[in-house]
Simulated scan of single mutants.
Amino acid sequence: MNTRIRTLLAAAALLAAATACGAEPLDSGAEAERSAAPVVLDQAPAEDKAAGVINAITPDEALAAKVPARLKTDGLKVVSSLGYPPMEFYGSDGKTAIGLDPSLTRAIARKLGVKVAITDEEFNSQIPGVLTGRYDFVISSMTDNAERQGKVSFVDYVRAGAGLLVKKGNPAGISGPDDLCGKTVSVVDNGSSLALAEQYDADCEKAGKGAVSILKFPGDQEALLQVGGGRAQASITDYVVTTYKAADPKLGVEAIALEGTESLWGIGMKPDDKELIDSVKGALDALIRSGEYGKVLKAWNLEKLAVESATVNGGK
């Protein structure tokens, strides 16, 4: 038997012995290691007020095992409208999404063990983007109501309403709608705040108290200036806006929540995307139970928006 044949027979014997012992091909271990490699989760940017909380969140293994397969490979694709602080807006670089909604999005992604990308879109384009599959979900201070439920399914994540801005120290002694009788309030014209002011005015007149004098302006900033200048004793706007303004010491105002005006805001998804809906609800409930949800809200001074559990299509 020549040398080449002996060499080949010896190699074959070694391979057979290795196979009999249950050995794997040399490259299979490397392949298994690559497939089992953990996802490197996104870090919240430094300007995210909840960054410390978010970056400490670790995946929930049970939830991570059940996420839709596309999320494991492509990550979570999210759409928002980045122009409504403190809920969603751009950081100082003009590119990075920050605010409560991006914070909660990143927290949900980390709990599910997936990466995330947040895209800015005009509000009216967001639901169509979800329905066409361009985005997995929309989170953009969107009220969960019956009309929208005809298009998407919501996982409700906060309960938000209207609020009052009053001068620091509240010299007019305003604590709620009844205290507005006989006073002047400023609002944005043709919005929900104007409707509330008109309702409070009607209630005051019905109760035989002084009417509410209403000053109307094109935007929140003009309405706010009336409080600082003393022309109005209060300004009515969204509660989330009042907290953001009150956090700026230069403005010299404080926020008061208008109880009873709250509605649920939801994360919108395709109704037939059941796996994703369950995953997002599960992640949000896990964050609520762990206390991480509350810490994220507190970082943005929005604890009053907290819900006790995630609901699906709980809005009316």
Rank of each mutant, 00 (worst) to 15 (best):
A36L: 10
L26E: 07
E121P: 03
R34T: 09
G230V: 07
D74C: 05
K281E: 14
G294W: 02
G150Y: 07
K270W: 08
D203H: 07
A197D: 12
G314D: 14
S141F: 10
D220Y: 09
G291I: 03
K95M: 15
G169S: 08
S263Y: 14
S35Q: 11
S175Y: 01
T19Y: 11
I214R: 00
A20G: 14
T237L: 12
G129L: 09
L63C: 02
E262W: 00
A146C: 08
A36G: 13
D144P: 05
V114N: 06
F89R: 01
T119I: 00
L264K: 06
A23E: 12
A46N: 04
A246M: 08
N313A: 00
Y200L: 14
G229K: 04
A306I: 05
G113A: 00
A36F: 06
V79P: 03
P271K: 01
I214V: 15
V116G: 04
L26W: 01
V40R: 10
N2Q: 01
L164G: 09
S80E: 15
I267R: 00
A197C: 11
L224W: 02
G252Y: 03
P171N: 06
A44N: 11
L180G: 08
S35C: 10
V188G: 08
A246E: 07
A36K: 05
P102N: 04
K77Y: 12
D220R: 05
V241Q: 05
A195Q: 14
D178E: 15
L26K: 05
K49Q: 10
D93M: 06
V138M: 13
S175G: 13
Y90G: 10
K274L: 15
V187D: 07
G91N: 11
V241S: 09
I174A: 03
A10R: 09
T7V: 13
K298N: 13
N2T: 14
A246P: 01
K183A: 08
L26M: 14
K111Y: 04
A17W: 00
A283F: 00
A50N: 05
G83Y: 05
N55T: 04
W265T: 10
Q221I: 09
T19D: 13
G182T: 07
E88Q: 04
V116E: 13
D201G: 00
A64T: 10
S153V: 08
E308G: 02
I127M: 04
V39K: 02
A51F: 03
D42L: 08
A17P: 01
L284E: 12
C204F: 01
V39G: 04
I236H: 00
L82D: 15
S235E: 15
P68K: 07
L196C: 12
G150L: 12
I174F: 02
A62W: 05
S309L: 06
G219P: 00
R134I: 14
G291R: 06
K274H: 14
L63Y: 03
L276N: 02
N313P: 01
P85K: 10
T58P: 05
D285R: 00
G94P: 10
E308W: 02
K167A: 15
A20W: 04
S309E: 12
D93H: 06
G163Y: 07
S235R: 01
L112E: 11
M269Q: 03
L302G: 11
G22H: 10
L284C: 07
A18T: 04
